[in-house]
Design a protein around this nucleic acid. Structure first.
Lengths: 285, 285
DNA sequence: CGTTAGTTTGACGCGATTCAACCTTCGTGG
DNA sequence: CCACGAAGGTTGAATCGCGTCAAACTAACG
């Protein structure tokens, strides 16, 4: 099962392009450019820390395959995982603004990433307004994810917090084709989940078992299945609009001829999930 | 005392410009344009909710004076405050991407805001690369603030969490000149603080008192004073780099002639707190 | 001078952490 | 091929932090 998912994610179109295509209509040229961005690749092994809090951080990463975590340590030695990075996610997209990292990043699984020089991202903003719009979308979405985490950590009890997190990961994996309707393979240990939802390992375990006992999820060898999604969403107080944000649109590329007028481009951005991006009014005014 | 601070914040240069100027070198033209952006003003009264979760949200706000909160309600009726908005902060800067709001915003104090059409923000990105760079900076900083909240909520005990939050607000107020070295006027009730740090009102009160008893802060009629900032920063596990981010640079405007070459512009962006922004390479390459 | 919003404090109980033990699976080396 | 250790999962019991309930207090305001 796991193998199927993995191969699906790494064929033909990269996860990153799938992510972008879920928000914005891409043409062939854009897809090609974005794939090209990812030529410079590196692999990390499970457990490897490849960005360290406080140290130099001048290159951006784009996850092609595998999962990673962004985290910080408190002075009392507790680890708080700030974000889980899935295929198609950037790490350090806005790195232009800081010379040193203010968090650490480690590979949760064996990892395949593309290393991207910040300059190339600027190039996206200069030359590919639709792609840029997609990147901005990703930034906004990450902000929303982080906000939801805040709500969970601050105002939701243990079991809801955990289920909410599981639902979030599932949504995000769906977009890049690494989950199916029934569920997904959870690649985090309970300790890592605990450090994400701000609970102790023991308490996380007990509530995870409770969620199973009460029929919200089934766990089989790391594969999490939702028995009744509606019930789970309800119980976890999961914002359905959040879910909508991740609904991938089927329309991808090849629907629009490569060389288009500026009006077409604007139209494509308007057709994206939301209003036109900041680059939309490129020369309008 | 409060009056002094307030008048200081609303004279001559707007808080927003002060914020931008703390990261980026602005010339007169840019300052003027940005002030002009804020001509369309509205006032809200303390307690008024002017953005509602789930409803239309198509205009951006820029706080000129007063404080506001962004929050969400959970289904169990708890309120989690996602962010405190201070003078110079945008609300809905990236609104282009969502038609409806996914949080509510309410005035914490009487509020004076500028209403800005998203199109005008696009204009900033088109025509004023240095200003745009400053806006991006603000976005990144907001992300960092939210990340720190995550760490606090997930991994820090009550008293540290509260003190950390107080220090954060102090830092942010310093940038816009609404706090001094000794402390600042806290304009939130304990209930609002509680909803921000994810604790009950009672427990927040008790720990707030403990912080006073143990000599970290003094509170006099809403004015919070740090008795020993070093000790407070240490106890709250407050990231000093976070603090540095907010250190305002003295160099503002008028240092560079209004009409400059593109190289000067690039240089000014490079001189900002960090590397050049994405708009830096406008026509380079 | 009463009313309301906000602060403060004590008592009680629950939820989460911690400690401690045991179990399973899996990879590695003898 | 089995023995062993390491990593991860599971469970119970004791403890502590935090939430809830309840009541009193203070200051601001009409």
């Amino acid at each position: 099962m796991a193998t199927t998912i993995k191969s699906a994610a790494s064929t033909a179109m990269s996860a990153a392009v799938q992510r972008l295509a879920s928000n914005v209509l891409l043409n062939e040229e854009e897809v090609e450019f974005f794939e090209q961005l990812q030529v410079n690749r590196v692999a990390y092994r499970r457990g490897e820390e490849f960005v360290t809090d406080g140290e130099d951080f001048r290159l951006s990463f784009l996850i092609r395959d595998g999962w990673a975590i962004k985290y910080k340590m408190t002075k009392s030695g507790r680890r708080q995982i700030i974000g889980v990075c899935l295929p198609g996610d950037f790490i350090g997209l806005h790195i232009n603004f800081q010379r040193r990292s203010i968090y650490s990043v480690a590979a949760l699984t064996d990892l395949e990433v593309a290393i991207i020089e910040p300059i190339r991202i600027l190039e996206v903003y200069q030359k590919y307004p639709v792609l840029a719009s997609g990147l901005d979308w990703m930034t906004v979405r990450n902000f929303n994810i982080l906000s939801e985490h805040n709500v969970s950590l601050g105002a939701r009890p243990a079991s809801q917090r955990i289920l909410h997190f599981i639902l979030e990961i599932w949504c995000r994996l769906m977009v890049v084709g690494a989950a199916d309707d029934s569920g997904f393979r959870m690649l985090m240990t309970q300790e890592q989940i605990a450090d994400t939802v701000g609970l102790s390992l023991v308490h996380t375990n007990k509530n995870l078992r409770k969620l199973q006992r009460e029929g919200y999820i089934s766990v089989d060898n790391g594969f999490i299945t939702f028995n009744d999604k509606r019930k789970a969403v309800e119980f976890a107080d999961f914002d359905e609009r959040f879910l909508e944000q991740f609904q991938t649109r089927r329309l991808i590329s090849a629907q629009i001829a490569p060389r288009e007028t500026e009006e077409d481009e604007l139209a494509r951005m308007k057709a994206s999930t939301g209003a036109p991006s900041k680059v939309a009014v490129k020369k309008g005014a």
